[in-house]
């Protein structure tokens, strides 16, 4: 069957289109990006090579770059340690109620996840509006006037509010992953635990969670990637403000290139972004792989 499974012409026909598209739309642009990152180009007009000056400035003298990385880490932490456990708990609850009710609830929980980020963001920008938004109307009605702040521009609440929008939209996905993961837990191992006299918290911590480890780890990897990639939500709501408190690297590089006319600098940010994204993802995956082996 070597002729069937090892046919080189066939392999070439199957693989080349995909690889070609990826090289064209991913790899070559990154090559260009690297080239421009070594210049002081404004995006138009003449430019000079500046060597690694842009990189040096980003790494040594640009607090906004570090701020945006820290924000991504905060988002990651909130996603992993708050959103995920809640989604898991909810998924577990849904697994215990009737199929029909569970399906209805799951459909509702997932609605935000299918909508365009533009719709979601504008939705929440309006809800957070201090003049006519329903959140502050509600707070004032409840006599909590002092809490009715300007959510997206108050330095104390801006990052939290932006993270809330992101978590809110991502919640459906987390729930769905965990629910479908729970559905794959074989009946036998759980029954065996019940026979052994385990209470349900014990069943969860000793049997189900370890069984779910692959699912949990892949959800976390996905969360890590998407936390780093946040852009549109920020771009359409706070645009990184107030100050640079809600800045994320993808927004920042866009602003540098197209607002500050520092196209070369923006490309340097872009390259560092790739390095960080690939680096962190590989790191997290390694972490889980070795953990998985211990298990």
């Amino acid at each position: 069957m070597n002729r069937l499974f090892g046919n080189r012409t066939a392999i070439a026909f199957l693989v080349l289109p995909g690889v070609a598209i990826m090289v064209f739309a991913l790899i070559v642009p990154i090559g260009f990006s690297f080239y421009f990152s070594l210049t002081d180009w404004a995006g138009f007009g003449a430019f000079n090579p500046v060597g690694a000056a842009n990189y040096k400035e980003i790494l040594t003298a640009d607090p906004v770059f570090w701020r945006s990385l820290v924000n991504a880490l905060i988002l990651m932490a909130v996603t992993i340690f708050i959103q995920n456990p809640v989604a898991f708990a909810l998924a577990a609850l849904l697994a215990h109620i009737s199929q029909k009710a569970s399906q209805i609830f799951r459909s509702i929980f997932f609605v935000p996840a299918v909508l365009s980020v533009v719709v979601i963001t504008k939705l929440w920008v309006n809800i957070f509006n201090p003049t006519y938004g329903i959140l502050n109307k509600l707070l004032r009605l409840a006599g909590l006037k002092s809490l009715a702040v300007s959510w997206l521009s108050n330095p104390h609440t801006a990052l939290g509010s932006v993270i809330w929008i992101i978590i809110w939209q991502g919640f459906g996905w987390a729930l769905l992953f965990y629910y479908t993961g729970l559905m794959t837990v074989p009946k036998e191992i759980e029954e065996a635990a019940v026979v052994d006299g385990a209470s349900w918290p014990q069943t969860y911590t000793r049997i189900i969670l370890p069984y779910m480890f692959p699912v949990i780890s892949s959800v976390i990897v996905i969360d890590v990637i998407s936390s780093l990639k946040q852009m549109e939500m920020i771009y359409l709501s706070t645009d990184g403000g107030p100050g640079q408190l809600t800045q994320f690297i993808a927004v920042y590089l866009y602003q540098k290139a197209f607002v500050a006319s520092q196209y070369g600098y923006g490309n340097a940010l872009s390259i560092l972004f790739v390095v960080v994204a690939v680096g962190i993802t590989v790191l997290v995956q390694r972490l889980f792989r070795s953990e998985g082996e211990i298990q």
Partner: peptide, 16 residues
Amino acid sequence: GMVIPIHTTLLPNFIW
């Protein structure tokens, strides 16, 4: 391809 953020191609794709 899963890991590379689309946003990193936003700037260079203009030229390319």
